[in-house]
Design a binder for these strands. Structure first.
Length: 425
RNA sequence: GGAGGAGUGGCAGAGCGGUUGAAUGCACCGGUCUUGAAAACCGGCGUACCGAGAGGUACCGGGGGUUCGAAUCCCUCCUCCUCCGCCA
């Protein structure tokens, strides 16, 4: 969430940012409401503090009176302190309620978009930051979409997944499973080469963790929830990876911290069934390698561009046509200040598929997480960033479609040592 | 799952109702000394909130309670350790 002090000091900027996110005039009232609540909080705390100070002082005196054996004086004083207590209890309750309300309000404010974020309300308004410079591939007559290819070569089976679990849970098999494993291995190796520490995190997280990275309360409906144990299945490795550094105070020299991890990702994606989500385009469980960085605020945008280059490198290795979008205010995720999406071109479907999303959250997550670094005598919030590198299901979809030949599916060179075969047939 | 034990500052470890945000040691930072380093000695060394500042307040696993006053007593939850059971 946004820092209270930031909101107080930069009201205009906050309002401006919320407008880019298409807040209505009525919605903008939240900012004033927050400041009003914070004023109440300060006043209440100041009063409470002074009462507690008095109580502490008197209590000390009572202590020494007792030691001196002046029991009667102590008793009189004790009664006086009792009176203070009523007022302090009252103020404590008020303070607690105010803080709670304040937090609830803060949770409804998304991150302030970076100045480069274009206005817009939907996908169509996203800016093509880097178009594909060459011709888009065209396929021969009779080219098949990936779900047909899957059937033809027995790569994955969604009906089987439905039998075992439900719709949207693909079963990969044979060379399809091997391809999947090869991609994960390639992506992890590339990330490690780029200096990221490889992590295998838990796939279930608790409420506090989900809250810290912003999945709660904003995206609660998107996560699978294990009620009995009060745990959530991760929708992305971002959640456990970023939380490794929750409640940590770093030294400036620790930057940048770079983590990578492969995990399956679970997303409920409520209400999204239909033709456009066929095959692997949108599933409830998919594999992804994620990269995460923690960086000094002055350097986080350089880092963002480095991460972009890393993802570009992967797509180049896979020889897939792709473009990069800069997300507009309406499409930007709740917690992000600036996000670039990577889309690969899926030649048989003749459409772009999102395979990566690279974001700078600035201090939005670190504020909730209390991830700080020492800056002289005080502490400051670090910046957090993450990106998919890459999301597998759709990469597989594009790979299958774009590389189909009458003899089988051609495996890109960079992947061959991982798959152990050059042609999937 | 059953029985017992324990959770204190970066780490180790005192404190078990009053002047303790917390002894002591280690680590760390600054200084003296030294050609340099080590050693020794001196000083500093948690986080957050309120305040222009002086200063005040909160925090000893989380939450709640008793008390004029709680790291210290009570309740509850969580975590870790030991033993038994089950098990990839």
């Amino acid at each position: 969430m946004l820092e209270l002090n930031f909101i107080r000091a930069n009201q205009e900027r906050v309002l401006q940012g919320l407008k880019i996110r298409n807040f209505t005039d009525e919605g903008l009232g939240i900012v004033n409401e927050i400041i009003r609540l914070d004023d109440t909080r300060k006043d209440t705390q100041t009063e409470l503090d002074s009462i507690l100070a008095e109580r502490n002082q008197l209590s000390k005196e009572i202590g020494s009176l007792f030691k001196q054996g002046k029991k009667e004086e102590a008793d009189t004083m004790r009664q006086r302190v009792s009176l203070l207590k009523d007022r302090s209890t009252e103020l404590e309750e008020k303070l607690k309620a105010t803080i709670k309300e304040l937090e609830e309000h803060l949770y409804t404010i998304p991150n302030i978009p970076h100045e480069s974020v274009p206005a817009g309300s939907a996908e169509e308004d996203n800016e093509v930051f880097k178009p594909w410079p060459k011709e888009l591939p065209t396929l021969a007559e009779g080219a098949l979409p990936h779900w047909e290819l899957a059937r033809k070569y027995n790569i994955f089976d969604l009906e089987l997944g439905t039998k075992i679990t439900g719709s949207g849970f693909p079963v990969f098999r044979g060379k399809g499973a091997r391809l999947q494993r090869a991609l994960i291995a390639l992506f992890l190796d590339e990330a490690v080469k780029a200096g990221y520490e490889e992590i295998i995190p838990p796939l279930l997280v608790n409420e506090e963790t989900a809250r810290a990275t912003g999945q709660l309360p904003d995206k609660e409906a998107q996560m699978y929830y294990v009620e009995r144990d009060n745990l959530y299945l991760i929708p992305t490795a971002e959640v456990p990876l970023t939380n490794i550094y929750r409640d940590v105070i770093l030294d400036e020299k620790d930057f940048p911290i770079k983590l990578t991890g492969y995990t399956p990702c679970f997303r409920r994606e409520a209400g999204s069934y239909g033709a456009h989500v066929r095959g692997l385009n949108r599933v409830h469980q998919f594999d992804k390698v994620e990269i995460v960085q923690f960086q000094h605020p002055d350097k986080s945008y350089d880092t963002l561009y480095n991460m972009l280059e890393h993802v570009e490198g992967l797509l180049n290795k896979l020889e897939l046509p792709f473009r990069i979008l800069r997300l507009c205010g309406g499409d930007l995720s709740f917690t992000s200040a600036l996000t670039f999406d990577f889309e690969v071109y899926s030649a048989a479907q003749q459409r772009w598929l999102e395979v990566s999303s690279v974001s700078n959250f600035e201090t939005y997550q670190s504020n909730r997480m209390k991830l700080r670094f020492r800056d002289g005598k005080s502490t400051r919030l670090a910046h957090t960033l993450n990106g998919s590198a890459l999301a597998l299901a759709r990469i597989v979809a594009a790979l299958l479609e774009n590389n189909q030949t009458p003899d089988g599916i051609v495996i890109p060179k960079a992947l061959q040592s991982y798959t152990g075969f050059e042609l999937l047939a």
